[in-house]
Design a binder for these strands. Structure first.
Lengths: 225, 225
DNA sequence: CGGAAAACCACATCATCATGCGATTGATTG
DNA sequence: CAATCAATCGCATGATGATGTGGTTTTCCG
């Protein structure tokens, strides 16, 4: 059940994905190699048994996607992801694991993993997962996705206040939260300084605040932005 | 609290998934009906144009899965999910929407939605999404899954950057985040305005920012306060 | 003891923000 | 068609913030 798969036709124009695999289990490396070689748009650059030198591996081979086992002796897969993230902010990393416990999932996501596939579904899900991650998605085995959802605050029963900010105002507020000065905002949106002032005053009125710091704080805490 | 996953066996035994659809757009209801009728294991119980009476609909028709449009006049799809959850803790609800903004996703998940599919991918993803949700998974369009991941605490690579703020500085920053002006901070801590300035300047240096809004934003996002 | 760091204060200056009072345009709507 | 509203812009003024330079006192630690 590769629930996240999209029709192959969506990817006809996609260039080949160069893949780098890390797993200490030789049998799995071999079967994964076979699996990947079945797809013409997937190319396995290499299959390493340890992520000890993951960053230099990347520098040498320039993969588009990393497949990373989570349970490896020596260096943990989660640690490896952290190292990758320190070197490359965006390189997609799909975790492969037999476990789908909350602890592992949480750690992997926080470390910066892009996807999380259980090995028992790997043969069905890996090819589409690679395509998903290449197009900016986050492939997850169904049960993992469910657990990820449960990590989000569910208590949120209380009503979210509606401040009724206009689209433009929300945009301004977003920039304010990102630390932009009025001048920078004006330049960014191609509007005059006075217009920025005008918008921000209205935002303050709607949020019932009187300063940028209050607005920023409220915006973040109430998830307006 | 690890009874997170649904009892899978409850659903695996079922031959056919009985589906109930809510969407105010008639064209979409018709095309969805056609899509579902293509699969022998999927059965559309009904296609409603409003979730006004969703709970009594469920009591009458006993669906296995709900497909719920998020943007409907009258009653919002998210509200409908809350009503469903108040009646049935586990009944799978898959949200259908054209938007994948954070606000909508977050609200839907918090309300208790089990999946989140963008309409532009609906024809390809719905059948497998229904099967996924029936077996306890959480089907999501790739881009949605990515955004869900981003909602989780991004501890990121370096455990937690240490800005080495002194105790007093952290205190000042806390007040700044709470929207206090320099004057108010001084009054609160019984120190002079110039001392407040002095402290805040040092905080800015340590956080590598140049304005209160940047400091507040960083403080909240990096959980310094 | 001596040095470092934290917390405190003062003065000065320029930049930026907060606020109020208008005013124009275009799109939407009853 | 009139009314509303979002978005734009201008001017003016006082308040507040950002930055620099320099200083004192206390506390803590090797």
């Amino acid at each position: 059940m590769n629930n996240l798969s999209l029709p192959v036709t969506d990817y006809l124009e996609m260039e080949t994905a160069n893949i780098l695999l890390y797993d200490d289990n030789e049998a799995l490396r071999i079967s994964m190699e076979a699996l990947i070689s079945e797809s013409v748009d997937l190319n396995l650059l290499g299959a390493m048994h340890t992520p000890q030198n993951v960053v230099s591996d990347i520098q040498t081979l320039h993969p588009d996607v990393i497949l990373m086992d989570i349970d490896m002796p020596g260096m943990n897969g989660v640690e490896a992801v952290k190292n990758i993230r320190a070197y490359d902010e965006k390189l997609p990393v799909i975790m492969l694991t037999v476990f789908d416990d909350n602890e592992n999932i949480f750690n992997a996501i926080c470390a910066g993993a892009s996807g999380y596939i259980l090995k028992r579904y790997a043969s069905e899900e890996i090819p589409s997962a690679i395509r998903t991650v290449m197009s900016g998605g986050a492939p997850m085995t169904g049960s993992v996705a469910r657990k990820v959802l449960q990590m989000l605050p569910t208590a949120k029963s209380e009503e979210q206040e509606d401040y009724k900010l206009s689209k433009r105002e929300t945009e301004l507020l977003q920039l304010l939260v990102n630390g932009f000065s009025y001048k920078m905002i004006g330049y960014e949106l191609n509007i005059s300084l006075d217009t920025v002032r005008s918008h921000i005053k209205k935002i303050y009125d709607k949020l019932h605040v009187h300063s940028a710091t209050e607005a920023v704080s409220l915006a973040i805490k109430k998830r307006i932005v």
